[in-house]
């Protein structure tokens, strides 16, 4: 599963971290970092993260 975050749109709200902590994290500078190639078993969690993103910056590409 390929996860894409539009970093021009992302404002580091970090809501995605609560839905899919295996994929999304807020680093020590307060910026979002994520695992682009994530395991298929995390699809539901990443979809949930995409739903709750205030800026709607997260997509699953395949």
């Amino acid at each position: 599963m390929k996860v894409v975050v539009d970093m021009d749109v992302c404002k580091d709200h970090g809501q995605c971290v609560f839905s899919a902590p295996e994929v999304f994290q807020i680093n020590e500078n307060g910026r979002l970092v994520y695992v682009a190639e994530s395991d298929e078993s995390l699809r539901d969690a990443v979809e949930e993260a995409a739903d709750v993103c205030p800026l709607q910056a997260i997509t699953i590409e395949d």
Binding site: D12, G14, V17, F18, I26, E28, G30
Partner: peptide, 9 residues
């Protein structure tokens, strides 16, 4: 205080 969000949530 973004680093405090997770704890309080």
């Amino acid at each position: 205080l973004p680093s405090a969000v997770a704890r309080y949530r």
